[in-house]
Simulated scan of single mutants.
Amino acid sequence: MAKTLLDRHDTVLFDLDGTVYHGSRPIPGAADAITHVRERGRAVRFVTNNAAKSPESVAEHLVSLGVHAEPTEVSTSAQAAAVVLRERLPADSVVLVVGTAFLEAQVRSVGLRPTRRHGPEVAAVVQGHSPDTCWADLAEACLAVRAGAWWVACNTDATLPSERGQLPGNGSMVAALLAATEREPHVAGKPEAPLLRTAAHSAGAASPLVVGDRLDTDIAGAAAAGFRSLAVLTGVATPRRLLAAGPGERPDYLAADLGALTRDLSAGELEIGPRPGWRVTVKGDVAVVESAVGEGDGDSLDLLRHLCHVAWSAPVSSVRAADVRAESALAPWELG
Rank of each mutant, 00 (worst) to 15 (best):
G212M: 00
E184A: 15
A223V: 15
A329H: 01
L335N: 12
D157W: 13
S313Y: 00
G336I: 00
P120C: 03
V98N: 03
L209T: 06
S207P: 01
R38H: 07
A223T: 15
L5T: 01
S202T: 08
S172K: 09
V289F: 00
V174I: 02
F102E: 01
A245D: 11
R40F: 00
S109G: 01
A292N: 08
F227T: 11
A52W: 14
P251R: 10
V232C: 06
G99N: 11
S54G: 08
L16K: 04
K283P: 00
D92G: 02
D257L: 11
K53S: 03
G212L: 03
E56G: 12
S313N: 15
V94E: 14
G41W: 06
D299N: 11
V282M: 00
K283I: 11
P120T: 09
A158C: 04
K3Y: 14
A224N: 11
G119L: 02
D15P: 09
T11F: 11
S328Y: 10
L303C: 04
A223P: 07
S77A: 02
V110G: 01
L254C: 08
H306P: 05
Q166E: 15
R25C: 00
G189P: 03
L258H: 13
S291C: 01
A331R: 15
G273H: 07
D7G: 02
Y253E: 06
P26C: 05
A139R: 13
S313H: 14
G246E: 13
A147M: 06
Q127S: 03
W278H: 02
G165A: 07
H201M: 09
D7H: 10
L242Y: 11
E334C: 06
A223Q: 12
T217R: 08
P332T: 05
D302R: 08
T4A: 00
E70N: 05
L5I: 10
P114H: 10
P114D: 05
V67F: 14
A52K: 10
G128W: 10
T198Q: 15
G111A: 02
G296K: 03
W312N: 01
R25K: 06
